[in-house]
Protein backbone atom coordinates (compact mmCIF):
# COMPACT_ATOMS: atom_id res chain seq x y z
CA UNK A 1 0.00 0.00 0.00
CA UNK A 2 2.58 2.49 1.04
CA UNK A 3 4.85 1.42 -1.78
CA UNK A 4 2.12 2.08 -4.26
CA UNK A 5 1.60 5.57 -2.94
CA UNK A 6 5.28 6.49 -3.07
CA UNK A 7 5.45 5.10 -6.55
CA UNK A 8 2.57 7.13 -7.87
CA UNK A 9 3.88 10.19 -6.13
CA UNK A 10 7.27 9.73 -7.73
CA UNK A 11 5.64 9.41 -11.09
CA UNK A 12 3.61 12.56 -10.60
CA UNK A 13 6.68 14.43 -9.53
CA UNK A 14 8.81 13.32 -12.45
CA UNK A 15 6.06 14.08 -14.96
CA UNK A 16 5.64 17.55 -13.58
CA UNK A 17 9.38 18.01 -13.71
CA UNK A 18 9.35 17.02 -17.36
CA UNK A 19 6.75 19.63 -18.25
CA UNK A 20 8.82 22.27 -16.54
CA UNK A 21 12.08 21.38 -18.26
CA UNK A 22 10.35 20.85 -21.58
CA UNK A 23 8.79 24.34 -21.44
CA UNK A 24 11.53 26.16 -23.38
CA UNK A 25 11.64 23.36 -25.98
CA UNK A 26 7.88 23.59 -26.48
CA UNK A 27 8.11 27.37 -26.77
CA UNK A 28 10.81 27.09 -29.44
CA UNK A 29 8.74 24.52 -31.33
CA UNK A 30 5.69 26.79 -31.23
CA UNK A 31 7.80 29.70 -32.50
CA UNK A 32 9.08 27.55 -35.39
CA UNK A 33 5.52 26.55 -36.33
CA UNK A 34 4.44 30.19 -36.22
CA UNK A 35 7.47 31.11 -38.35
CA UNK A 36 6.63 28.43 -40.88
CA UNK A 37 2.97 29.44 -41.07
CA UNK A 38 3.88 33.07 -41.61
CA UNK A 39 6.41 32.22 -44.29
CA UNK A 40 7.42 28.71 -45.35
CA UNK A 41 10.86 30.06 -46.21
CA UNK A 42 11.48 30.17 -42.46
CA UNK A 43 12.30 26.47 -42.48
CA UNK A 44 14.58 26.70 -45.53
CA UNK A 45 18.08 25.37 -44.97
CA UNK A 46 19.58 28.78 -45.65
CA UNK A 47 17.48 30.49 -43.01
CA UNK A 48 18.01 27.80 -40.40
CA UNK A 49 21.81 27.94 -40.77
CA UNK A 50 21.64 31.70 -40.60
CA UNK A 51 19.53 31.50 -37.44
CA UNK A 52 21.89 29.07 -35.76
CA UNK A 53 24.94 31.13 -36.72
CA UNK A 54 23.39 34.29 -35.31
CA UNK A 55 22.42 32.60 -32.07
CA UNK A 56 25.96 31.33 -31.57
CA UNK A 57 27.26 34.65 -30.11
CA UNK A 58 24.59 35.08 -27.50
CA UNK A 59 24.46 31.32 -26.94
CA UNK A 60 28.15 30.96 -26.15
CA UNK A 61 28.12 33.98 -23.84
CA UNK A 62 24.93 32.73 -22.16
CA UNK A 63 26.56 29.38 -21.39
CA UNK A 64 29.22 31.23 -19.44
CA UNK A 65 26.49 33.26 -17.77
CA UNK A 66 24.75 30.05 -16.71
CA UNK A 67 27.73 29.22 -14.51
CA UNK A 68 27.92 32.69 -13.00
CA UNK A 69 24.19 32.82 -12.28
CA UNK A 70 23.98 29.24 -10.99
CA UNK A 71 26.70 30.09 -8.46
CA UNK A 72 24.63 33.06 -7.31
CA UNK A 73 26.46 35.81 -9.21
CA UNK A 74 25.72 38.05 -12.18
CA UNK A 75 27.94 39.48 -14.91
CA UNK A 76 26.76 42.68 -16.57
CA UNK A 77 30.05 43.40 -18.28
CA UNK A 78 29.96 40.75 -21.04
CA UNK A 79 28.76 43.01 -23.88
CA UNK A 80 31.35 45.69 -23.17
CA UNK A 81 33.95 43.00 -22.59
CA UNK A 82 33.25 41.56 -26.04
CA UNK A 83 33.61 45.01 -27.60
CA UNK A 84 36.85 45.75 -25.76
CA UNK A 85 38.33 42.35 -26.65
CA UNK A 86 37.31 42.80 -30.29
CA UNK A 87 38.95 46.22 -30.35
CA UNK A 88 42.21 45.10 -28.78
CA UNK A 89 42.30 42.01 -31.00
CA UNK A 90 42.00 44.16 -34.11
CA UNK A 91 44.71 46.57 -32.93
CA UNK A 92 47.07 43.69 -32.15
CA UNK A 93 46.47 41.91 -35.43
CA UNK A 94 46.85 45.11 -37.46
CA UNK A 95 50.12 45.94 -35.82
CA UNK A 96 51.37 42.37 -36.19
CA UNK A 97 50.95 42.50 -39.96
CA UNK A 98 54.44 43.99 -40.37
CA UNK A 99 56.09 41.26 -38.36
CA UNK A 100 54.02 38.17 -39.23
CA UNK A 101 52.35 39.11 -42.52
CA UNK A 102 48.68 38.70 -43.27
CA UNK A 103 48.59 34.92 -42.86
CA UNK A 104 47.16 32.49 -40.36
CA UNK A 105 49.90 33.23 -37.82
CA UNK A 106 48.62 36.74 -37.22
CA UNK A 107 45.02 35.56 -36.87
CA UNK A 108 46.10 32.90 -34.38
CA UNK A 109 48.02 35.55 -32.46
CA UNK A 110 44.84 37.63 -32.33
CA UNK A 111 42.76 34.68 -31.15
CA UNK A 112 45.32 33.82 -28.49
CA UNK A 113 45.25 37.38 -27.22
CA UNK A 114 41.47 37.28 -27.18
CA UNK A 115 41.43 34.23 -24.93
CA UNK A 116 44.03 35.76 -22.60
CA UNK A 117 42.05 39.01 -22.42
CA UNK A 118 38.79 37.15 -21.73
CA UNK A 119 40.48 35.08 -19.05
CA UNK A 120 41.99 38.18 -17.47
CA UNK A 121 38.79 40.22 -17.58
CA UNK A 122 36.86 37.35 -15.99
CA UNK A 123 39.55 36.98 -13.34
CA UNK A 124 39.28 40.68 -12.50
CA UNK A 125 35.50 40.41 -12.10
CA UNK A 126 35.88 37.27 -10.00
CA UNK A 127 38.62 38.52 -7.70
CA UNK A 128 36.88 41.85 -7.10
CA UNK A 129 33.67 40.04 -6.12
CA UNK A 130 35.26 37.39 -3.90
CA UNK A 131 38.42 38.88 -2.42
CA UNK A 132 37.20 42.46 -2.71
CA UNK A 133 33.87 41.43 -1.19
CA UNK A 134 31.88 43.72 -3.47
CA UNK A 135 28.52 42.62 -4.87
CA UNK A 136 28.82 41.14 -8.34
CA UNK A 137 26.21 43.57 -9.64
CA UNK A 138 28.33 46.55 -8.62
CA UNK A 139 31.66 45.11 -9.76
CA UNK A 140 30.41 44.20 -13.20
CA UNK A 141 28.44 47.43 -13.53
CA UNK A 142 31.78 49.16 -12.99
CA UNK A 143 33.77 47.00 -15.39
CA UNK A 144 30.95 47.31 -17.92
CA UNK A 145 31.50 51.06 -18.02
CA UNK A 146 35.27 50.70 -18.08
CA UNK A 147 35.40 48.21 -20.98
CA UNK A 148 32.87 50.20 -22.99
CA UNK A 149 34.78 53.44 -22.65
CA UNK A 150 38.08 51.68 -23.42
CA UNK A 151 36.84 50.52 -26.82
CA UNK A 152 35.54 54.03 -27.58
CA UNK A 153 38.92 55.41 -26.59
CA UNK A 154 40.90 52.90 -28.68
CA UNK A 155 38.68 53.64 -31.68
CA UNK A 156 38.95 57.36 -30.94
CA UNK A 157 35.20 57.57 -31.01
CA UNK A 158 35.00 55.91 -34.42
CA UNK A 159 35.49 52.41 -35.75
CA UNK A 160 38.50 50.09 -35.57
CA UNK A 161 38.82 48.18 -38.82
CA UNK A 162 40.80 45.04 -39.48
CA UNK A 163 43.51 45.14 -42.17
CA UNK A 164 41.85 44.30 -45.48
CA UNK A 165 44.14 41.36 -46.37
CA UNK A 166 43.79 39.90 -42.88
CA UNK A 167 40.04 40.00 -43.32
CA UNK A 168 40.43 37.64 -46.24
CA UNK A 169 42.43 35.21 -44.11
CA UNK A 170 40.12 35.44 -41.12
CA UNK A 171 36.82 35.50 -43.05
CA UNK A 172 36.25 31.69 -43.23
CA UNK A 173 35.95 31.47 -39.44
CA UNK A 174 32.55 33.12 -39.70
CA UNK A 175 31.46 32.35 -43.27
CA UNK A 176 32.76 28.84 -43.98
CA UNK A 177 31.15 25.53 -43.14
CA UNK A 178 32.46 22.21 -41.91
CA UNK A 179 30.39 19.09 -42.58
CA UNK A 180 27.47 21.29 -43.65
CA UNK A 181 27.43 23.43 -40.50
CA UNK A 182 28.94 26.92 -40.25
CA UNK A 183 32.03 27.21 -38.04
CA UNK A 184 30.24 29.43 -35.41
CA UNK A 185 27.62 26.70 -35.00
CA UNK A 186 30.37 24.17 -34.36
CA UNK A 187 31.86 26.49 -31.79
CA UNK A 188 28.43 26.82 -30.14
CA UNK A 189 28.01 23.02 -30.09
CA UNK A 190 31.46 22.41 -28.60
CA UNK A 191 31.04 25.08 -25.92
CA UNK A 192 27.56 23.70 -25.13
CA UNK A 193 28.73 20.13 -24.70
CA UNK A 194 31.70 21.22 -22.61
CA UNK A 195 29.45 23.46 -20.51
CA UNK A 196 26.85 20.74 -20.01
CA UNK A 197 29.50 18.25 -18.95
CA UNK A 198 31.11 20.72 -16.57
CA UNK A 199 27.85 21.73 -14.89
CA UNK A 200 26.16 18.33 -14.71
CA UNK A 201 28.91 15.76 -14.52
CA UNK A 202 31.76 17.25 -12.52
CA UNK A 203 32.38 18.20 -8.91
CA UNK A 204 32.90 21.79 -10.06
CA UNK A 205 29.34 21.94 -11.38
CA UNK A 206 28.00 20.57 -8.11
CA UNK A 207 30.00 23.18 -6.22
CA UNK A 208 28.49 25.97 -8.35
CA UNK A 209 24.99 24.73 -7.53
CA UNK A 210 25.81 24.37 -3.84
CA UNK A 211 27.25 27.89 -3.60
CA UNK A 212 24.24 29.33 -5.40
CA UNK A 213 21.89 27.48 -3.05
CA UNK A 214 23.60 28.50 0.16
CA UNK A 215 27.09 29.91 0.40
CA UNK A 216 27.47 29.19 4.12
CA UNK A 217 26.63 25.52 3.66
CA UNK A 218 29.15 25.37 0.83
CA UNK A 219 31.84 26.93 3.01
CA UNK A 220 31.16 24.51 5.87
CA UNK A 221 31.26 21.65 3.37
CA UNK A 222 34.95 22.27 2.62
CA UNK A 223 34.24 23.95 -0.73
CA UNK A 224 36.69 26.68 -1.74
CA UNK A 225 33.90 29.15 -2.31
CA UNK A 226 36.03 32.08 -3.48
CA UNK A 227 37.97 29.97 -5.93
CA UNK A 228 34.87 28.36 -7.45
CA UNK A 229 33.08 31.70 -7.76
CA UNK A 230 36.12 33.32 -9.38
CA UNK A 231 36.33 30.41 -11.81
CA UNK A 232 32.74 30.97 -12.92
CA UNK A 233 33.67 34.54 -13.95
CA UNK A 234 36.78 33.22 -15.70
CA UNK A 235 34.62 30.72 -17.62
CA UNK A 236 32.33 33.61 -18.50
CA UNK A 237 35.31 35.65 -19.72
CA UNK A 238 36.65 32.81 -21.87
CA UNK A 239 33.18 32.26 -23.35
CA UNK A 240 33.05 35.95 -24.24
CA UNK A 241 36.47 35.68 -25.91
CA UNK A 242 35.34 32.67 -27.97
CA UNK A 243 32.21 34.54 -29.04
CA UNK A 244 34.38 37.51 -30.00
CA UNK A 245 36.73 35.33 -32.05
CA UNK A 246 33.86 34.22 -34.26
CA UNK A 247 32.25 37.67 -34.26
CA UNK A 248 35.19 39.78 -35.46
CA UNK A 249 35.46 38.19 -38.96
CA UNK A 250 31.74 38.90 -39.52
CA UNK A 251 32.18 42.65 -39.89
CA UNK A 252 35.95 42.95 -39.52
CA UNK A 253 35.54 45.94 -37.25
CA UNK A 254 34.77 47.05 -33.72
CA UNK A 255 33.24 50.27 -32.41
CA UNK A 256 31.58 51.62 -29.31
CA UNK A 257 28.29 50.06 -30.47
CA UNK A 258 29.70 46.52 -30.67
CA UNK A 259 27.97 44.11 -28.34
CA UNK A 260 25.57 46.66 -26.86
CA UNK A 261 22.93 44.95 -24.66
CA UNK A 262 24.49 41.53 -25.14
CA UNK A 263 24.66 41.15 -21.37
CA UNK A 264 20.90 41.48 -21.12
CA UNK A 265 20.28 39.06 -23.98
CA UNK A 266 22.63 36.53 -22.40
CA UNK A 267 20.96 36.84 -18.99
CA UNK A 268 17.55 36.61 -20.69
CA UNK A 269 18.57 33.41 -22.49
CA UNK A 270 19.70 31.90 -19.19
CA UNK A 271 16.48 32.83 -17.40
CA UNK A 272 14.19 31.70 -20.23
CA UNK A 273 16.03 28.39 -20.08
CA UNK A 274 14.90 27.81 -16.52
CA UNK A 275 18.03 28.71 -14.54
CA UNK A 276 17.04 30.45 -11.32
CA UNK A 277 18.29 34.06 -11.21
CA UNK A 278 19.19 33.93 -7.53
CA UNK A 279 21.26 30.82 -8.09
CA UNK A 280 21.27 27.21 -6.98
CA UNK A 281 19.75 25.69 -10.07
CA UNK A 282 21.19 25.86 -13.58
CA UNK A 283 20.38 24.27 -16.91
CA UNK A 284 22.76 24.45 -19.87
CA UNK A 285 20.21 22.82 -22.19
CA UNK A 286 17.68 25.46 -21.23
CA UNK A 287 20.18 28.23 -21.87
CA UNK A 288 20.83 26.93 -25.40
CA UNK A 289 17.09 26.88 -26.07
CA UNK A 290 16.77 30.34 -24.54
CA UNK A 291 19.39 31.73 -26.93
CA UNK A 292 17.68 30.05 -29.88
CA UNK A 293 14.28 31.43 -28.82
CA UNK A 294 15.59 34.99 -28.63
CA UNK A 295 17.23 34.78 -32.06
CA UNK A 296 14.18 33.09 -33.59
CA UNK A 297 11.91 35.93 -32.50
CA UNK A 298 14.08 38.46 -34.31
CA UNK A 299 14.26 36.18 -37.31
CA UNK A 300 10.49 35.73 -37.54
CA UNK A 301 9.92 39.46 -37.27
CA UNK A 302 12.26 39.89 -40.27
CA UNK A 303 10.04 37.52 -42.21
CA UNK A 304 6.73 39.18 -41.61
CA UNK A 305 5.23 42.63 -42.01
CA UNK A 306 2.55 42.00 -39.42
CA UNK A 307 4.69 43.28 -36.56
CA UNK A 308 7.35 45.91 -37.10
CA UNK A 309 10.91 44.72 -36.82
CA UNK A 310 11.44 47.58 -34.40
CA UNK A 311 9.29 45.72 -31.89
CA UNK A 312 11.87 42.93 -31.60
CA UNK A 313 12.76 44.07 -28.08
CA UNK A 314 9.09 44.13 -27.08
CA UNK A 315 8.59 40.54 -28.20
CA UNK A 316 11.76 39.39 -26.43
CA UNK A 317 10.70 41.21 -23.28
CA UNK A 318 7.27 39.61 -23.34
CA UNK A 319 8.79 36.16 -23.83
CA UNK A 320 11.10 36.63 -20.85
CA UNK A 321 8.27 37.71 -18.56
CA UNK A 322 5.91 34.96 -19.71
CA UNK A 323 8.64 32.32 -19.39
CA UNK A 324 9.39 33.28 -15.80
CA UNK A 325 5.67 33.48 -14.95
CA UNK A 326 5.25 29.91 -16.16
CA UNK A 327 8.28 28.71 -14.22
CA UNK A 328 7.08 30.35 -11.01
CA UNK A 329 3.66 28.77 -11.37
CA UNK A 330 5.09 25.28 -11.54
CA UNK A 331 7.56 25.95 -8.71
CA UNK A 332 4.64 26.94 -6.53
CA UNK A 333 2.74 23.80 -7.41
CA UNK A 334 5.58 21.47 -6.57
CA UNK A 335 5.98 23.23 -3.23
CA UNK A 336 2.39 22.63 -2.19
CA UNK A 337 2.76 19.00 -3.14
CA UNK A 338 5.70 18.33 -0.90
CA UNK A 339 4.91 20.25 2.28
Amino acid sequence: MSEVTTNSELKGRSMQFDIKTAGPAIALLVLCVIGFLLNPAFLSEGNLTNLLTRSAFIGIIAIGATFVITAGGIDLSVGSMAAAIAGVMIIIMNSAVDAFGTGVATVLLGCGCSVILGFGAGLINGVLTTKGKIEAFIVTLGTMGIYRSLVTYFADGGTLSLNFDLRGTYRPVYYDSFLGLPIPVWAFIIVSVAGWFLLNRTAFGRYCTAIGSNEAVAKYSAIKVDRVKTLTYVIQGVCVSVATIIYVPRLGSASSTTGVLWELEAIAAVIIGGTVLKGGYGRIGGTILGALILTTIGNILNFTDMISNYLNGTMQGLIIIVAVMLQRASWGKSKIRTT
Binding site: T209, S213, V217, K219, G280
Partner: peptide, 8 residues
Protein backbone atom coordinates in the same frame (compact mmCIF):
# COMPACT_ATOMS: atom_id res chain seq x y z
CA UNK B 1 21.64 27.82 7.25
CA UNK B 2 25.09 26.23 7.39
CA UNK B 3 24.64 22.48 7.38
CA UNK B 4 22.45 21.30 4.55
CA UNK B 5 21.12 22.60 1.25
CA UNK B 6 17.42 22.74 2.06
CA UNK B 7 16.30 23.06 -1.56
CA UNK B 8 18.21 19.98 -2.70
Amino acid sequence: SKGLLMQQ
